[in-house]
Every structure is written in C-alpha cells, then in structure tokens.
Design a protein around this nucleic acid. Structure first.
Lengths: 221, 221
DNA sequence: AAAAAATACCGTCAAAACACCTTTTTATTA
DNA sequence: TAATAAAAAGGTGTTTTGACGGTATTTTTT
C-alpha cells in the first residue's frame, strides 16, 4: 500500500454537530484529512499556531466572536497560500461577493450533497477555485450591476456623455487644462462643464465633484 | 413535423469570413437561426431598427467605428432583454471584466470549438448566463483582488491620527484654511501635512488625496 | 545634555481653480 | 431658411493650491 499525500483540511464552524459530521465526511474521502476544528475565527487563529498549517480551510460565515469574513481576511493576509472554501446557510449575493472579496476560492451551501462538497474540494485543489452555477450567476450579476449605477444617475440628474467623461477625468490628478486636451476641447468649455455640474449638483469645488462621482459609481475607486 | 420556435441570433464582427462561417454554423444548430449580421456597433444599431429584434447577439470586442463594449452598453440600455455573448481573440482579465460590466452574459474565445459555442448559446438561453472555467477564474480573481489593496496600503503607509483627520477633512469642500481652523492649527501646518502626504503617497493634487482616502476606506463615500 | 527627529510654523510666488459674463459655432426645428 | 436653442469658446479678475526654501519648539534618542 502506497502512502498517500493527503490534503489537510481545517474546519471552522460554531455548530459542533455539523462540524463533527463534516470532519467525518471529509476524512472519509481518500485524499482529505480533517486535521483540526475551531469554534470561530478567534479560536481558529489560536489553534493554527499550535497545529500544522492546513492546505484548505472550510469556513463558516456566520459565527460569534469573529465571523467568516474577518477570518478570511486575516488568513489571506497571514497565510496567503491557505485556500478557503466558504460554507454558508444563505445564498444571497452580498454574502457571496463579500467572501470572494475576502479571498475565498469557493462557496457552498450547508445543505449541499456530500458529492458537491467533494467536487468543491477537488476543484479548489486542482484548478484553484470552485465555481457552481449559483456562484457564477451571482458573480456575473454583481459585475453586471457595476455599470448600471452610472445610467441610473444619468437619469436622476441627467448628465450627458461628455459630462460623465469629464467627471471621470476630474477624479484623476489631471488639471482642467489637461482634461480639455484629452477631450479635444477648449479649457473654457471644460470650465463650462464644471460650472454647470456645480450648479446642477449644488457643490462648488472639485473635491465635491470627485465625491459625487465616487458616491454614484461613476468612477470605481 | 412540428414547427420549432428558433432563437434568433444576430452577429456583429468586422471580419466577413469569420462572420459568414459563424452564421452558417449557428444556423446549422436546430434551435438557432442567424437573422442578420453587422460590421460593427454603428452598423448593428442601424440594422436592428429595420430587422426583427434578436434574442441574442454574438458580439465581437475589437471592431472599428464602435467596439464591443460600447455596443453592449447601448444594447443593455436600449434592449435590456437581448442577451449578449461576447466573442474575443483575447483572454485577458480586463477585457472579460469590461464585457461583463457592459452586460455580457457569456464570453468565449474565437478559437473555441463549435461545440463550446453551442454550449454557450444553450446555457445563456436556459440559465441566463454561460460560465466557462476561463471566465470563472478571471472573475473570481478580479473580485479577490478588490480587497487586497486596502490592507496592503494601510501597512505600507502608516498614517497618524492627525493625518487621518486631515485626510477626512480634505475630502470635504472645505479649503485648507478652513480645515486649519477646524483643527486649531495654522494653515501653514496644514500645508505641511499636505506636502508630507503628497510625498509619502506619490501624488501631487488634492484630488489624489481624496481618491487615496476613498480607496483605502479612510472616508466612506 | 547633546544630537536627531518630529512637529508646528512662516513668506513668496506661480499655477490652478473658481466666478461671472460675453460671443461664436453648431444643431434643431418651425 | 430664418428663428432658436444648445454647445463650445472666450475675457478678466479673485481665491485657492501647490512648490520651495526656510525657522522655532518640542520630543525622542543616544
């Protein structure tokens, strides 16, 4: 019998029963081994110091003390090579996006089938990420929306394309003169755009313009 | 023989040969029918007015006159129900993100196999999106990065309390003189803070300060 | 206690930003 | 095609910003 190089998995979840069940399940897969468990992020940070560093962490999102989001951020910063699979009861878009932002490489629901868990683990270890239809649709939808705010605001305060373009450039370190050059317009015209926006938006400085643009998603900071 | 409700597909690409080939291929699939073709975005906008509105548009990214991004944006705004499958020669992250931002529901490379095209079309029409491993990895990677800069910069540039307070005020419409008053300091001192931050952050205008503060969560827009 | 380093402060000046008001050019449409 | 609206460009003056080259005071280090 050949010795197999198993993938070490740590479990972080505040529900003891579920956690134990998961540990058993994972260790029942040939290639995986549950090395240790923790109740929450704080507990996990303590335990990772006195245990071998896992290859992968199965991380619950909703936990007391320190939640999955904060834990993932900490992990990404401290052990960037440890891969994270998020585990959650909910499939809402914000949770998913937040966890991926925080460094997760996959996201599965707690009521998934064992074989989906296995598939997720395999995919993360081989491809570097796991992507279900659930995640894809939310991800694509969320990226799709990024651009929408622009058009919304356009209608609210009715800004034309030139003004939008000007606003974007006003959020850079260019001077108005440079912006004028870039837009093939006279500096006076830019002056006009600025003054009109000041009027329309009830502001009076370039900083005001920048904050407006950021707040309304016209520039993505 | 039952009449089949076919999905109408429009093709937008400046390469005539490729376009014709695609049209043939698509019409060879039972469920799809290529209704019309266009050379570029401008041409497409003209033609959509005198043709039946397609269910799906196969849209090239790199085109003269009006490129895929602009065309997708226009489509999303004007015919939000028309689904877009982006077609590109390149697999770079920015292109992919840009197209999804602009409303695409799928992204395939020009050198894909016919059966992948078929799969993409089917997936977009049934699930609403098509997601290859290529797209997933770029999407996840791009979302992963969102959070990175934040934590990195906070450590690289350690700012003291006064600088933080100044930065927050610099994001308002106050002049430096007014900021000085509010902080019970001489305007010259504020000048000093500003210059030091310029130096530290490698920027040279107040707009730069504002964008830095926003990007790093020092002010919540 | 001397040296070093932050910290707060100062003057000048040119460039950029802002205000206000006018004229030309380009589109629109009646 | 004349009337009109809208976009672009111009003139002039004030205020704010940013660059540069400094000094006095406090705090930290040695």
């Amino acid at each position: 019998m050949k010795p197999i190089e198993k993938t070490n998995v740590a479990l972080v979840d505040d529900h003891v029963l579920l956690r134990n069940g998961l540990a058993g399940l994972i260790s029942s897969f040939d290639e995986y081994h549950a090395i240790f468990e923790a109740d929450n992020g704080r507990d996990f940070i303590d335990k990772i110091k006195t245990n071998p560093v896992p290859d992968l962490v199965l991380l619950d999102i909703n936990m007391p003390e320190m939640d999955g989001y904060a834990t993932a951020q900490w992990l990404k910063q401290t052990y960037p090579l440890v891969r994270i699979l998020a585990l959650s009861m909910y499939d809402n878009e914000t949770s998913i996006i937040r966890m991926f932002k925080a460094g997760a490489r996959g996201y599965i629901l707690k009521d998934s089938e064992p074989r989906e868990l296995k598939k997720a683990l395999d995919s993360i270890m081989s491809k570097g990420f796991y992507n279900s239809d659930l995640v894809s649709s939310k991800l694509i939808h969320s990226i799709n929306k990024l651009d929408d705010k622009e058009s919304e605001v356009k209608q609210l305060v009715d800004l034309n394309d030139r003004e939008i373009q000007f606003l974007k450039l006003a959020c850079t370190e260019m001077t108005y003169k440079e912006i004028a050059e870039k837009m093939f317009l006279s500096p006076r015209t830019i002056d006009g755009y600025r003054d009109e926006l000041f009027e329309k938006l009830g502001i009076s400085t370039r900083v005001g313009l920048v904050m407006f643009a950021v707040r309304n998603g016209i520039v993505i900071p």
